[in-house]
Simulated scan of single mutants.
Amino acid sequence: MSINDLPVLSALRTKMQWHQERQRVLSENVSNSDTPNFKPKDLVEPKFNSTGQPVGGFAALTLTRTSAAHIAPSSGDNASFDQNRKVGFLTRPAGNAVSLEEEMLKVSANQMDYAAATSLYGKSLRLLKTAIGKA
């Protein structure tokens, strides 16, 4: 059995990938805070069953170029998580619904959760090494 097959480590890896993708989405919200008619996006947090496998499928997020002058999205994105469409309730006269305060709170909470997941992942690996006598 490979270490990658352990449900706990697989769930933690999925959680860390979700936090990385969410950080990218939140940074796009912040960078478009002055773009007219921009609506902020967020990701739905993945749910796990008792075996550590994600529950429900994740639909791929795709970026859309609305102008040929826009930079093309990189093809190496891990865009495999559901998008939360219930964000951005306050809209400014220009149609922009990004609140920098809310986005920065989300960024900081996301960063702390990612740090907790990476810490748990590292501790799990150290525990496994101790169990097999390598530490």
Rank of each mutant, 00 (worst) to 15 (best):
L125R: 15
M112A: 08
K15L: 02
N84D: 15
F48D: 07
L9D: 09
S99T: 15
T66N: 11
S75G: 07
G122Y: 15
G122N: 15
V25G: 13
P36R: 05
D113T: 06
L128D: 04
A135S: 11
K123D: 02
L120A: 10
M16S: 09
P93Y: 06
R22W: 01
A60E: 12
P36L: 00
L125T: 12
L9I: 07
D5Q: 15
M1F: 10
L61V: 04
V44Y: 01
M1H: 10
G88M: 12
R13Y: 09
T14G: 05
P46H: 13
K41S: 03
N96S: 03
Q20Y: 10
L9E: 13
M104L: 14
S74M: 03
A109T: 07
A60G: 03
E45M: 04
T64D: 09
A97K: 13
V44P: 02
P7H: 06
Q20N: 13
A69I: 00
N84Y: 10
G88N: 13
G56N: 09
T66A: 03
L12Q: 13
M104P: 10
E45R: 11
D34A: 05
K47E: 14
V87C: 04
L9T: 06
F81M: 03
N96H: 08
L125P: 15
V25C: 09
S67F: 03
L26Q: 03
M104F: 15
E45G: 02
V98G: 04
S10M: 05
G57K: 12
Q111R: 14
P36A: 03
P7T: 07
D34L: 06
L120P: 11
L26N: 02
S2P: 12
L100T: 11
A68Y: 10
G52P: 14
G57P: 05
M1G: 06
M104T: 15
I132K: 15
V25T: 15
F89M: 11
R13P: 02
N29S: 00
T91W: 08
L9H: 11
